[in-house]
Design a binder for these strands. Structure first.
Lengths: 198, 198
DNA sequence: TCAGGTATATTCACTGGTCGGTATACATAA
DNA sequence: TTATGTATACCGACCAGTGAATATACCTGA
């Protein structure tokens, strides 16, 4: 396996990722995954114990890149803190206009696995959301204070995941921008409250 | 068919509703629906053209009762407008603690049908969410003004749907209460802004 | 009142196809 | 020779949907 090339296992995860994200977990058969990855189904079962394992690998592979995307959006946004938070939502709205956009893979997977709370993919999903929440909280803390950062980060996550869900239903990116405005409002109010506590 | 009894068609929709909500659309077979309804599969196909038809009927049957629930929660809540909005979320959090609670059936169905935006169940889902949004907007308008009510209602919907989704993933009803606080904050800020415009 | 007909409602048995997963055999390289 | 990896072919279970026959309720005309 030369540098830059993908191992068979990685190719399977990549193929599965595209299909799972595009169509959903239950809608995609292992036959389809194997074909897209260019391997036989038996080869798949050499590398993975089950489809459930593959679903977990799919989400685990998206954890870090997804967080990095939010971080980049936040880093390049201009203006004060509320504006930079709103910048995340503006980038989200831009992404959502892409025809292949299908919402948040973590949330969608959790819907399909709703009766399997212990499923490794559910565990991975929860860990990812918590990681985003912690990072957001760290970014907010210098301006809103220690006690206020965490609940505010949770409120922003709620708006973000709401935007994912509503956009998926309505296919109207304006909702994501409304969420961004709400987020900016909440951050602004928290900053004002923090200044009042000085 | 005596008064108070259900027609065969209604019994099928009721059985399907419980199964679809509890397990998901794709996870439930027509065999399971037919058995739960006490009919044969062939009888099902006498009353419905396809499974897709049944999914649409399932959501259409939940539209009015769901809206009525929100209206009741809002009506019985005490305090000022922000407190009554927050009351909706508190009732939501209470519901979510029930073991059979599985989030919002409309949102979950839209996740499963993400690649069929014209599906009648998707249309029903969008109509339902719009109906809730319009009602909320009407409730808000007297206190926040004509122009502000609609975007504020959308923000509250985003928080509500975010709460549904996050709760489904984390199974931690505290998030719904956080959403309620954010909602109350946004309503309060909108009222203050409206008073400033006088 | 009732015979005959028609539309509604229901049943059993079945089809073609897909699903996740496996048995077995073959290839290659250390 | 042995561990790793791949291929073909297959399995039992399940799934959405169907064919053909039958039961029930209601209507009409005599």
């Amino acid at each position: 396996m030369a540098k830059g090339e993908l191992s068979t296992r990685e190719r399977i995860v990549e193929a599965a990722g595209k299909l799972f994200y595009g169509e959903g977990i239950r809608a995609v058969s292992l036959d389809a995954v194997a074909e897209k990855a260019g391997v036989t189904k038996r080869t798949f079962y050499y590398h993975f114990r089950s489809k459930d394992d593959l679903v977990a690998a799919y989400l685990e592979a998206r954890d870090q890149p997804n967080l990095a995307l939010f971080q980049r959006w936040f880093a390049v946004a201009e203006g004060d803190l509320p504006a930079r938070v709103e910048g995340i939502f503006q980038n989200l709205a831009r992404s959502a206009r892409h025809p292949k956009w299908k919402g948040c893979g973590f949330l969608r997977t959790s819907v399909e696995l709703v009766n399997l709370p212990g499923h490794p993919a559910m565990v991975a999903g929860r860990a990812h959301k918590k990681r985003v929440e912690s990072w957001l909280s760290e970014m907010l803390e210098p301006e809103v204070g220690t006690g206020a950062a965490e609940p505010l980060a949770q409120q922003l996550i709620l708006l973000m995941d709401g935007a994912f869900s509503v956009q998926l239903l309505h296919r109207d990116a304006a909702y994501i921008e409304v969420a961004g405005q709400a987020a900016a409002n909440l951050v602004r109010a928290a900053i004002t409250a923090a200044e009042g506590r000085l």
